[in-house]
Nucleic acid binder design. Structure first.
Lengths: 186, 186
DNA sequence: GGTAACATGTAAGCGGTTACATGATTAG
DNA sequence: CTAATCATGTAACCGCTTACATGTTACC
């Protein structure tokens, strides 16, 4: 079986096959609806990843076309379930990697005149407000899952919401004391 | 001058040359001390980036060895300053990209038994506590800069702190009601 | 005398995205 | 009839990291 080393995205695919997502297409869509806040994945990754996982014996796939539309569904094997748990419990560095152009721009905003700087800050606030609203909208679904025994999606969802609300709060605080951000206090 | 299109990391390099960072080494170090929370950059990026910016006429470099130790320092040109401001005010998509393995693991943690899931949650809380402490430690410096007219580094720093505190809060809330995360409430 | 910090750079490789290509089915 | 959605895949490219290579200076 000589399982090729799996990268995080492979584990995401492996993990999603246990949450109702059966085809590559569904996996991609489920990622978009659930962990998009802290992970993304593209179709060009999903399909090779599924092939890799099947080869390694962690998933078994079978063709399940609907009409003439091709379709292949996957199921996790015992080995696959074990591999996922091993990964989840493996204590390894979990580097926190955020790449946020908006933050970078904000950091350098002292190079702008106050009006432009203020506009940028407003954009950042708006972005987090929108994102928080989107996350709030899917909360009922996560709460339902929590009642059914899957509480962790709700946990990560709440972290996402808390994050964006924290950003909005800081934005508001600074927007109301603009003087402290510019060279001309009064 | 046919300025080759610049990517965000190029603008980071360009931006840092106005904040006291003069050599490639200093730029890398300054990034580490300031915007590491939402952007990173490696030496293998910095030096080619500097060459590119100089070629485009946005920076001028001159050799400034210290003793026999080679060293090249850069200054921003008027065109460079203008290019930075243009970028900062350019309204473009500012996608928010977080890739956080710890969050992914937490999302899938219902596949674990409660003990292991709890351990994972504790790890995430600890990580954010540490990160918040690190950011708190550099706050005085940012406050000093704010008094000198550069308020935006303090703003982004506070966002980083607020983020990690929000995560810690959510962790604590869920750690104290573990029953809601498992299938056996009582 | 040794380690850490200062300083600059190249080469190889990897993970990931964009764009492309193809085609079926469903809903309006 | 048309657009959106379902569904799977490949090829080219890009940004970035890791590892490597080299040498100096400061500090203990």
């Amino acid at each position: 079986m000589a399982s090729a080393t799996l990268n995080p995205s492979d584990y995401v695919v492996l993990g999603m096959t246990g949450l109702g997502a059966r085809s590559g297409y569904e996996i991609k869509r489920t990622v978009e609806l659930s962990i998009r806040f802290f992970w993304t994945i593209s179709p060009a990754q999903v399909y090779p990843s599924l092939a890799k996982l099947e080869k390694a014996g962690l998933l078994t796939g079978r063709d399940a076309p609907q009409g003439n539309r091709q379709r292949r569904v996957y199921e996790r094997t015992h080995e696959g379930a074990q591999a996922l748990r091993d990964w989840l419990t493996r204590s390894e560095a979990m580097p926190f990697e955020l790449r946020d152009i908006a933050m970078v721009k904000l950091f350098f905003a002292d190079a702008l005149d106050p009006t432009d700087a203020h506009r940028l800050l407003a954009q950042v606030r708006l972005r987090s407000e929108e994102r928080a609203a989107i996350l709030q909208a899917i909360r009922p679904e996560a709460e339902e899952a929590a009642h059914a025994g899957n509480g962790h999606p709700l946990l990560t969802l709440e972290m996402g919401i808390a994050y964006h609300q924290a950003i909005v709060n800081v934005c508001n605080r600074f927007e109301h004391q603009r003087g402290r951000l510019t060279r001309t206090p009064q």
